[in-house]
Design a protein around this nucleic acid. Structure first.
Lengths: 116, 116
DNA sequence: CACTCATATTGACAGATGTCGATATAGAGG
DNA sequence: CCTCTATATCGACATCTGTCAATATGAGTG
């Protein structure tokens, strides 16, 4: 039975683990779980994938409804979750809403795993 | 409106995206979502973190119950989910069950994100 | 075998989540 | 102003999920 030190980085930036054995604190874990919750749905993964592969790196809702075979309200709902998670960026131009990957967001999420 | 090619890698290994614009297929997305589902809980993230930081890279249930402030059945339940997701390895020695990170599993999961 | 300790499984239940249909909002064009 | 068209929000519903208490399993020990 080893004693582990629990680290709660109160502020946002959880950078460069100092040293010693440290473990995710409750608050940190909640924040990171929120990120993975956003990724924990096949349709949302496909949304990210389609947006990433789209011309110009952006897509509007009407481009996303058909390939997912979901209703428009459902797609809007998933997009909102991805935006709230900081993974997608939303820009309204005229009647259309264009969604694009937040630069580096996926990479930062990947780093969370390596840094676990 | 751009036409995107949907790729369904029937077999397991989804390596080296050939070229062109490609998008996660339904089946692939489900499999990958299952992975992230396992990570989409703060207590499971803490479990991974504690196991990783533990002496010898392994911990038994009794080491994990207290820091999480959860009942033993609940911890067992979370551990099972992580094992089923291929993230943790379970080895029974005597009365105790020792859990350890599956080597490279977190890194492979991180790669899924970059490869989205 | 009887007893204990560590872990797993079961059943129940509250709360979260994904989906849809209906409706609201809001910009573009007549 | 009225009408499209694109998107967002709302309300409802079935399903999934995290948690616990109770119980089962199974190894070690007297």
């Amino acid at each position: 039975m080893t004693t582990l030190q629990i680290v709660e980085s109160t502020a946002a930036a959880a950078c460069c683990t100092p040293s010693g054995m440290q473990v995710l604190g409750t608050e940190e874990a909640q924040g990171k779980a929120r990120l993975f919750k956003a990724l924990a749905d096949p349709n949302r993964l496909r949304l990210l994938s389609i947006v990433k592969a789209s011309d110009g790196g952006e897509a509007c809702v009407c481009d996303l409804t058909e390939p997912l075979d979901l209703g428009q309200p459902t797609v809007s709902h998933h997009l909102k979750i991805l935006v709230d998670a900081g993974l997608l960026h939303r820009e309204k131009r005229g009647t259309w809403a264009y969604y694009s990957l937040v630069p580096g967001a996926l990479e930062r999420t990947a780093d969370v795993l390596s840094a676990l």
